[in-house]
Design a protein around this nucleic acid. Structure first.
Lengths: 251, 251
DNA sequence: CAGTGGTCTAGACCACCTC
DNA sequence: AGGTGGTCTAGACCACTGT
């Protein structure tokens, strides 16, 4: 194999390439809000692919909030690059939200192994036996010296044997996907607002208001196995969650 | 047209029918978590459709959190009917969340027309002119005598000329979709956490904690026009937002 | 009417998993 | 090797939108 085989995680099928090309055009302003994309027929000619392939790309654009397709009219751009997509770190599952504006420094406060039975919620969420060993990782996310987020993460030790505080302070997801070759597929999240406990008040330097937005999530891999249990406590006054949803028309 | 034309909003294309049939089977326990669905080949035979049609149905099931497809293996059910999908009213865009457990009574506190310039945020979100007239609708949602949610809604008057408090206390969405024949397509939501204002404290009967979860959303129709601006204030201690997200693999 | 997107088909080739 | 899902094609017919 003489050529570069370093395509990495870049999906290289045709409809994904078309999706990336058009979404970049939208994000960089070559298409503006309310513009109409070229028709499917025209895109078929432009990209020299079949219509179904073009349609897959357009459906991706629609699902991700870039366009709205309209029968008889065309595909209209609905993404406004001037919109506010600032959002708390943890909601990084949605592409748009990768454009995070705040710079955080991450400090690993604790990284220890425990038997799973110490954390019944984790045991249940990750489908563990009481004697399985889990990492408990606690991290502070600071912005301008102020702790905005406290993350508590739980992983099965045997899946992440080499975890250390350096990795924890860089990017765990990069380690998981690039180094271990695992693929993250989906997650369930729950957001609630809670009064701070005393320990939390310490970690947040006794900020006001004494409330946190709690995001609990279970992250699953490709093979549907639950992989990570995360409890992310956000200083309530700094928390913002942004969501784009499509109406479900199947009932 | 001799036959019943009363198909209403029930999408009657093939892949939607297959989607509904299988999702019902999952929700009613005929498939359980970790079961593997029949293969695409088998479903093609069962439903007597082409493979792409079966695949559209399976993709819908995957997008909506019912299954996870795995290359070489099959489609595994990941939906657990025993899971907690209780959620605050406003997040009703996701199908799963229709199974709301709490019973709310709705009281329309105010329904008045104003010039749009009174509400700059609304004017901007709904792309109105200052002199456009908008409805302001304020509703309390009560559970066991306690106000849990205060909704403030804004609509362009000329789009909803017949709005009245009876409709407001029943279902506005039914009125919009069934009576007016409009189709809701998508929405942007923002969730933040705020201290109550004095007016809000009144509407919430001076509950503790004096904090609310604020969900601001702009709802768009089929033709991409912004239709509704909604600010939903939830008593912080009663608020819970549930999200299912798929990892985006296109970058 | 012509142009648009929505649905559906029958077949092909590939990559992945299990035996 | 045989079964699974992933991608892609070329073509068809339909429903909706505009002129």
């Amino acid at each position: 194999m003489p050529e570069s085989d370093r395509v990495s995680a870049m999906s290289s099928n045709k409809y994904n390439q078309i999706y990336r090309e058009i979404s970049t055009d939208i994000q960089e302003g070559r298409y503006e809000k309310d513009d109409v994309l070229p028709s499917e027929h025209r895109l078929v000619a432009t990209f020299d692919v079949s219509r179904e392939t073009v349609r897959k790309a357009l459906n991706l654009l629609q699902e991700n909030g870039f366009i709205q397709k309209m029968k008889g009219k065309g595909s209209v751009v609905i993404y406004d690059s001037s919109m506010d997509f600032t959002v708390s770190h943890l909601t990084s599952f949605k592409e748009i939200q990768q454009l995070k504006t705040k710079q955080y420094t991450t400090l690993a406060v604790e990284l220890e192994q425990y038997p799973a039975e110490q954390f019944p919620h984790v045991m249940q969420a990750l489908e563990l036996s009481p004697e399985d060993r889990v990492w408990q990782l606690i991290r502070q996310r600071k912005h301008e010296g102020q702790t905005h987020i406290v993350d508590m993460d739980y992983f099965l030790v045997e899946m992440l044997p080499g975890l250390n505080t350096k990795i924890a302070e860089d990017s765990i997801y990069e380690y998981i996907e690039k180094k271990l070759g695992l693929t993250i597929a989906y997650s369930h999240k729950e957001i609630t607002f809670d009064a701070m406990t005393d320990e939390e008040a310490d970690l947040f330097d006794h900020s006001v208001p004494p409330y946190v937005a709690t995001v609990r999530s279970v992250v699953h891999l490709n093979d549907a196995s639950p992989f990570q249990y995360n409890v992310s406590k956000h200083l309530a006054s700094e928390f913002k969650f942004v969501d784009f949803s499509r109406r479900f028309h199947g009932e």
